[in-house]
């Protein structure tokens, strides 16, 4: 009788441990998938931004005939972003594109007809909106990375994470050029 109770007790403990292990593993997988999903969302916004650039270049070309270098910079940055091989490259290219677009929008101040063009205004608003969405997507990405990191580094998750080979993902950090103070020249 006693042996039976001990056996039942051991079975219950083992069942509990297996259940806990399954729950923890699934939690890690879920958190990691959310990090990947959120990165994909940043990608969606970057692609959306890249799709707006050709229309912008077409709107601007007719008005600013002697500013080809600015237009070329935008086109080059866009190509670099579309052809980026990994997320870090894509974000670096996006930073370059933002800088190039800033010059175009600053340029529009010198061309009132361009500035008043409805298509140009619409594109400018859309690009601004997309840039905000990229910023929010980055913030949410960092939060999902934090949630995942907490799961795999806090006790007792860190034991199982090491066992199953779950590794922390990197936060998205702004590079030195983005952190530098913006120089405004008049």
């Amino acid at each position: 009788m006693e042996t039976t109770f001990i056996f039942i007790g051991i079975v219950i403990v083992i069942a509990f441990l297996i259940g806990f292990l399954i729950k923890t593993y699934n939690g890690f997988v879920r958190a990691r998938n959310r990090v990947k999903t959120q990165w994909a969302q940043i990608d969606v916004q970057l692609k959306r931004r890249a799709d707006l650039i050709p229309n912008l270049i077409e709107s601007v070309k007719g008005y600013v005939k002697h500013e080809n270098d600015v237009i070329d910079r935008v086109a080059a940055a866009r190509s670099k972003m579309v052809g980026a091989g990994n997320p870090k490259e894509a974000m670096q290219a996006n930073a370059e594109l933002t800088s190039a677009l800033g010059r175009i929008f600053a340029l529009s101040e010198a061309y009132p007809t361009l500035k008043a063009n409805t298509n140009f205004m619409q594109l400018q608003n859309s690009l601004g909106e997309t840039e905000s969405k990229i910023a929010y997507a980055r913030q949410f990405y960092n939060d999902t990375v934090l949630i995942y990191k907490d799961k795999i580094t806090l006790f007792p998750g860190n034991i199982f994470a090491a066992m199953f080979g779950f590794k922390a993902e990197a936060f998205f950090e702004a590079d030195a050029s983005e952190r530098a103070a913006v120089q405004v020249k008049f």
Binding site: R34, T37, Q38, Y136, Q139, F140, D143, T144, L146
Partner: peptide
């Protein structure tokens, strides 16, 4: 709920998160 830690954010973070 699933993609952020806004549950722990303080009111000063409104400048970062705005309507969220």
């Amino acid at each position: 709920n699933e993609f952020s830690v806004l549950s722990e954010a303080e009111k000063e973070k409104i400048v970062l998160w705005n309507d969220f």
